[in-house]
Simulated assay, not measured.
Amino acid sequence: MTDQKPVADMTFEEAMGELERVVAALEQGNVPLEQSIALYERGATLRKHCEDRLRAAEEKVEAIRLAEGKPAGLAPADGL
């Protein structure tokens, strides 16, 4: 995993895709200890980035709902 893109520059989709690859590599269990630690640290950073992106998206949706005169807060999406 050399020449890694900085996590802060990743889209949600890019970070989630890399996080899935990190988890898969760790689950295989054939990665040397030092590399496993580095992967785990990268995974933790990617997870936080994804959580932050989701939180920001939720806040934007709440702001839009409030601007439309609808109660702020999370509401189930239609069809889910």
Rank of each mutant, 00 (worst) to 15 (best):
residue 20 E to T: 12
residue 13 E to R: 11
residue 1 M to T: 08
residue 37 I to H: 09
residue 58 E to C: 02
residue 26 L to T: 00
residue 61 V to Q: 05
residue 36 S to I: 02
residue 6 P to I: 03
residue 27 E to K: 11
residue 44 A to D: 08
residue 32 P to H: 01
residue 9 D to Q: 05
residue 44 A to E: 10
residue 58 E to F: 03
residue 43 G to T: 05
residue 2 T to D: 15
residue 80 L to N: 12
residue 34 E to N: 13
residue 77 A to W: 04
residue 74 L to H: 11
residue 17 G to T: 12
residue 12 F to G: 00
residue 79 G to I: 08
residue 33 L to V: 11
residue 54 L to E: 13
residue 62 E to R: 13
residue 58 E to I: 01
residue 58 E to W: 03
residue 6 P to M: 04
residue 21 R to H: 06
residue 60 K to S: 14
residue 5 K to V: 07
residue 10 M to C: 04
residue 44 A to T: 06
residue 15 A to L: 10
residue 29 G to S: 05
residue 1 M to A: 13
residue 16 M to D: 12
residue 18 E to M: 11
residue 27 E to C: 02
residue 54 L to Q: 12
residue 68 E to Q: 15
residue 74 L to A: 13
residue 47 R to Y: 03
residue 74 L to C: 00
residue 3 D to I: 03
residue 43 G to K: 04
residue 51 E to A: 12
residue 16 M to E: 13
residue 17 G to C: 08
residue 66 L to C: 08
residue 1 M to I: 04
residue 63 A to Y: 06
residue 72 A to D: 08
residue 57 A to I: 03
residue 3 D to P: 00
residue 10 M to I: 00
residue 7 V to L: 04
residue 69 G to R: 10
residue 34 E to H: 09
residue 62 E to I: 06
residue 66 L to A: 15
residue 54 L to S: 05
residue 75 A to Q: 14
residue 1 M to P: 06
residue 48 K to P: 02
residue 24 A to R: 09
residue 62 E to G: 01
residue 33 L to K: 11
residue 8 A to H: 07
residue 64 I to V: 14
residue 24 A to H: 05
residue 42 R to Y: 01
